[in-house]
Write a protein that binds this DNA or RNA. Structure first.
Length: 268
DNA sequence: ATGGTGGTATGACCA
């Protein structure tokens, strides 16, 4: 069996817990990274996930942000990290951990609101510090995955209307360049390792019937370092939960990896 | 159409 790794911005785990439980039961990922849990740690529903056979790690706050990692309990989660050097940030957007000889870095990248705004400057600074951290960390591990809501559409093919979105937030040259800086450290966008349908997106605005009309962006990514990318056997976006009642505005993104031996060595 | 929806919290924010 391959190892299945997924990422999903749930836009409030409080509201979306039934969706996450149903999706875990259907897809049975080995590892699931969540973003926008919007829950302080003392309200994280860890018991619900342990009942389903998942160990959890979380870094949350009230109202905004919040990230978590779920991993099947036969894997041991080690070396958790919530803050990186040079970024003194109360916003809970970063969660890293080791599973076996795999490093997982779960990111809820800053949205940025509008190119040129204060929040955009924060986004670019935040990305710069995360890139520095990855540069310092990537050589330590055999396998390294960076996944999450990047709030950046890598290229025009990831945008439903590239001309309308040209140089807008999530699509600007500066943001795409920052993503390239991360990828230049040796990472592949696993989704693009395979032939994919045109107009494949992971986020659709709640407004203007974005999902029904497939007016979306692909901003949720699963980046794998070269060694891990070589073991990637499949990558896709599961649009199903986006069609459920009261959905998140994001769909889960998933990668499958031929990692059995690498993970088994370290599994407890 | 310069809006629209949704979550949090119950005011405006954030997306």
């Amino acid at each position: 069996m391959p190892v299945k790794i997924a990422s999903w911005n749930v836009n409030s785990l409080n509201v979306r817990l039934p969706h996450v439980i149903e999706w875990l039961d259907a897809e049975k990922p080995d590892i699931l990274a969540l973003q926008e849990t919007k829950l302080p740690d003392d309200r994280f529903p860890a018991d619900h996930f342990s009942e389903l056979g998942y160990e959890v790690l979380y870094s949350g706050q009230k109202t905004y942000n919040g990230v978590a990692i779920l991993a099947r309990t036969h894997y041991e989660i080690r070396n958790p990290l919530t803050d990186i050097p040079g970024l003194d940030d109360p916003q809970r957007r970063i969660l890293a951990a080791d599973i076996g000889n795999l490093r997982i870095l779960n990111l809820y990248v800053v949205n940025g609101q509008e190119v040129g705004s204060d929040k955009f400057a924060y986004k670019m600074h935040w990305l710069d510090k995360v890139t520095d951290y990855v540069r310092s960390d990537v050589g330590v591990y055999d396998y390294y995955v960076i996944l999450g809501d990047f709030n950046i559409a890598p290229a025009d093919e990831d945008v439903h209307d590239p001309d309308m979105w040209r140089d807008k937030i999530l699509c600007s040259v500066q943001e795409r360049s920052a993503l390239e800086n991360i990828k230049s450290l040796g990472f592949k966008d696993t989704f693009r390792l395979f032939e994919q349908p045109d107009n494949s997106f992971s986020w659709w605005d709640y407004r203007a019937a974005g999902f029904r009309r497939n007016l979306g962006l692909r901003i949720d990514l699963l980046l794998a370092n070269t060694a891990l990318a070589k073991r990637c056997t499949r990558a896709w976006i599961d649009r199903t939960p986006r069609g459920w009642d009261r959905p998140s505005d994001h769909a889960p993104v998933i990668g499958e990896f031929d990692l059995d031996n690498a993970m088994d060595v370290q599994a407890r």
